[in-house]
Amino acid sequence: MTSTPKRPRPEPVEVIKHRRDSTLSALVNGVPYIKFLGIEVERHGDELTAILPFAEKLIGNPMLPAIHGGVTAAFLETAAVIELTWVGLWSDMEAGALDQSDLRDEALRRLPKTIDFSIDYLRSGLPRDAYARARVVRSGRRYASVHVEAWQDNRNKLFAQATGHFLMPNLAE
């Protein structure tokens, strides 16, 4: 006797993790400047946290010392761009629609262009690791708006926040 059709078996967890981690890695490791700053990205499900490990070369005020305001700006912008690209990639990635032969190019061609980026410096950046999480506030066909928060020791004591507007790539081109 045959039973009624069942739901397909869920994919093995290793397959899911590999697909998501390799896509994220292609997105993060394809950009030289992200490597130069030493930014890493951690993933929990679809939630991303950008990490900026402290390094001597990131210092902007040697007397305090404090992280350079430009580094903070670059870190937040990078977190925003990665989040926005990641959100756009997600459904195609899960559907297995990404070109696996050149995942890096597949990720890079989806990078949005920054139109403007506005940073609030709330506290001086201390000489230790920093973390950032971005939220896509609105994503349209052509434009997107992203908000980012960054902290160091305490998640609820932000040292910087930013809002950026982005031009989405035309994938039909």
Binding site: P32, Y33, I34, A73, L111
Partner: peptide
């Protein structure tokens, strides 16, 4: 300091710094 290796354009973050 490149932001997009396909074009060689400098990353906006470096310009911000």
């Amino acid at each position: 300091f490149v932001g997009d290796p396909r074009t060689g354009v400098i990353h906006g973050g470096a310009v911000s710094a």
